[in-house]
Amino acid sequence: MIRLMTTVLCAIIFMMSAQAQFYKGKADASSISFFSKSPLEDIDAVNKKVTVVLRTTTNDIQFAVPMIGFKFQKSLMEEHFNENYVESSKFPTSTFKGKITETIDYSKDGEYKVTVKGTLELHGVTKDIEASGTLTIKGAEIMVSSAFKIKVADYNIKVPSLYVQNIAEIVDVKVNATLEPFAKK
């Protein structure tokens, strides 16, 4: 009996390990961008140096974003962003660690509306956030996209009163990622 149980358990575990898929962002196929709209100035920046990992067995999804990777149209903005606002030398990476709340059958192709709950660490401040988006499964690849808003002041990023007209209080963030399976080494 016990032998049988062992065999079954082993079989289950091996099956699980075959399915316990980790997905990571394909090289140069993921981006995070933000957009600040204010009366005086529109600011947008794109970061393509994003690391994403998804564990399908637990619905865990995590992002790591090097702050210095944000590219602006104006290089002076980029310098100010790193020097005065997010302080990239002190807080080099922003991370998101969360879970997809819906159950998803990762073996089937399709588009799913999803909600992600988790914590975002930015500028040394960690806050709970929730974002909705879509998850598209197509063959071996998974596409994730989401848009949410961040209140700059929540993350202790101070905008001098002189620039209140130039920088929005609430910034739109867009996430796009294409993931592919990878085997843990």
């Binding site: 062992t6 358990l9 082993c10 575990i13 699980m16 390990s17 316990a20 980790f22 990571k24 690391t51 990992v53 998804l54 564990r55 865990d60 995590q62 790591a64 991370t95 660690k97 990878f182 843990k184």
Partner: peptide, 23 residues
């Protein structure tokens, strides 16, 4: 012990910081 030996490697996988996997 036999079970443990089987389960241990998987428990390592259950770490919270997935990002270290691709670091």
């Amino acid at each position: 012990l036999y079970y443990l030996a089987i389960f241990l490697p998987f428990s390592v996988l259950a770490q919270d910081d997935l990002l270290t996997l691709v670091k």
